[in-house]
């Protein structure tokens, strides 16, 4: 190994040690991490994210340039139920407007961290939930036929 490489290695070690001490993982972050395993969901199919306008750089840039800041998300369950969401308002107090396809009444709960907000979807499968905070979000829909749709976690 060249002397230069050794010097670089030493400096990197110093940087690693400095960061470990000067930028520790906060205790509340570690505590939250330990509780994450409680969200393990047995026997519940997860509705996977199909599309997120925030994952598309061009679309995201357009949303920011426009007057409306709308983020569009869609999820699909393994048995084909589609959940479409439009999210407006930042950075706190988001409004979540949703549509269940095929249309169905449902009890819808938006979960963000410790906060839960619940609303009913109408016969056309439409719902609106206000005052949703930022953070890791999952949406839970209880359908009248007993089925439950739970979305994958997504950052809000």
């Amino acid at each position: 190994m060249h002397a230069e490489d050794q010097a670089d290695r030493r400096l990197l070690d110093e940087i690693g040690e400095m960061l470990r001490v000067a930028d520790p993982v906060p205790d509340h972050v570690r505590l939250a991490a330990r509780s994450a395993v409680a969200w393990r969901r047995m026997n519940e199919g997860i509705a996977e994210l199909l599309h997120d306008s925030a994952s598309d750089a061009a679309e995201a840039a357009m949303a920011v340039r426009g007057t409306q800041h709308i983020r569009a998300l869609s999820f699909q369950s393994s048995d084909g139920v589609l959940l479409e969401l439009e999210i407006t308002g930042q950075p706190v107090g988001h409004i979540v407007i949703g549509q269940i396809v095929p249309e169905s009444e449902a009890i819808v709960t938006v979960r963000v961290g410790e906060t839960e907000r619940t609303a009913a979807a109408d016969a056309l499968g439409r719902f609106r939930i206000d005052d949703v905070p930022s953070g890791p979000m999952s949406v839970h829909c209880q359908l009248p036929d007993g089925r439950t749709i739970v979305t994958s976690w997504t950052s809000l």
Binding site: D23, V25, H28, W39, P136
Partner: peptide, 29 residues
């Protein structure tokens, strides 16, 4: 944490992203 802190994000957002990373692992075991 090292990965998240490489971005200019607030402490709060960094914490949220750390948490969603764990939640996704729990979902994707």
């Amino acid at each position: 944490w090292a990965t998240v802190r490489g971005f200019r994000l607030s402490d709060e957002v960094s914490a949220d992203i750390m948490q969603i990373t764990w939640l996704k692992l729990v979902e994707k075991f």
